[in-house]
């Protein structure tokens, strides 16, 4: 187990290195740059631009910039934002709680609802319940998240006026109720797609499991329906479901990015979009690395969880 985790962490390091190379390259290959805006400004001279470029180190070859960035990143110096000049680490890290709040609550909600709906559809397969949930899930999966976000804002914030249209709290009112009302819409929107996926996946896993001999044994023992479905059925489904949770992390991160933008949720996603607009390279790279680290560690956690659930899986080799 320990060796397995060590080996996986080694793999993760290589992966993160790859992500950083590609991210860095794409960022610099993209047309324009942090200073593109100023070239249109008649009061900014060419000398000014050269001076700023030199200040940011942008006049050096890309590979030199990259090596410097890697060295700095590893030694804890994540650089300074091109805009405002603040140190990058606190800019990015202070956004993590908001993003975790949104992703965590959505994930939990989606898990609970998706698994419940999936079991329900599996037990009532080929009935109205099954077809109905399948249709809703397909709808949720085929329409983009931002569309649901805008629809939700239009209906619940604009027309009905029940909930705020965005932000994490009303300025000057940080009460729990206020925060929860702000969380509700983005959480539901982000949870929608995840719930749809979970319900479909749980359904197919459970349909397969419910035909297994050990389910018949559980029923032959006189166990109640909840015990059979959850204690024996869902327990067996945990292995594929936890694996899915790991694989779903990129989707969650991507969905959070869109949702934060639509709802002006002050998390890393919103920061990423504005940094992208500004070509704020140090901030972009930091967010990219934090996001990638989150996905990689999440996957590792999922694999370890699967091994803990299923005694037949041994984590001795990679």
């Amino acid at each position: 187990m320990r060796r397995y985790v060590a080996a996986r962490l080694g793999q993760a390091a290589v992966l993160l290195l790859g992500v950083s190379v590609i991210g860095f390259a794409l960022m610099h290959l993209a047309p324009g740059g942090p200073l593109a805006l100023y070239t249109l400004n008649p009061t900014v001279t060419a000398q000014d631009i050269e001076r700023v470029k030199h200040l940011f180190g942008l006049d050096q070859p890309v590979y030199v910039q990259y090596v410097k960035w890697v060295y700095g990143f590893l030694s804890g110096h994540w650089g300074y934002s091109f805009f405002g000049g603040r140190s990058v680490a606190p800019i990015v890290l202070e956004r993590i709680p908001a993003t975790l709040e949104l992703m965590g609550s959505s994930l939990l909600l989606a898990l609970a609802m998706g698994v419940a709906i999936g079991i329900w559809a599996a037990v009532r397969r080929n009935t109205l319940v099954d077809y109905g949930t399948a249709t809703v899930a397909m709808l949720a999966l085929s329409l983009p998240t931002f569309w649901f976000g805008l629809l939700a804002i239009y209906v619940f914030a604009q027309v009905l006026g029940w909930l705020p249209a965005g932000g994490i709290e009303t300025t000057g009112n940080g009460s729990l109720i206020d925060r929860l009302t702000h969380l509700l819409l983005p959480m539901l929107v982000l949870a929608l797609v995840l719930t749809a996926q979970w319900s479909r996946y749980t359904r197919s896993a459970m349909i397969d499991i419910l035909t297994q001999d050990y389910i018949r044994t559980a029923r032959a023992k006189g166990l109640g329906p909840v015990r059979v479905l959850v204690g024996h059925g869902l327990r067996a489904a945990l292995v594929p479901l936890v694996t899915l949770a790991g694989l779903q992390l990129p989707l969650l991160v991507g969905g959070a990015l869109v949702t934060e933008t639509v709802f002006s949720w002050p998390g890393m996603g919103l920061l990423f979009i504005s940094a992208l607009d500004n070509r704020d390279y140090p901030v972009l790279m930091a967010i990219l690395m934090v996001g990638a680290l989150f996905v990689v560690l999440g996957n590792l956690a999922a694999d370890i969880a699967v091994a803990l659930i299923d005694p037949r899986i041994r984590l001795s080799h990679v």
């Binding site: 297994q212 001999d213 018949r216 044994t217 032959a220 067996a236 659930i309």
Partner: peptide
């Protein structure tokens, strides 16, 4: 009570 043909699959693998 009832017992079945294939004991390997009749028992829950994770319990």
């Amino acid at each position: 009570a009832m017992i079945f043909q294939d004991p390997a699959t009749a028992l829950h693998p994770l319990i």
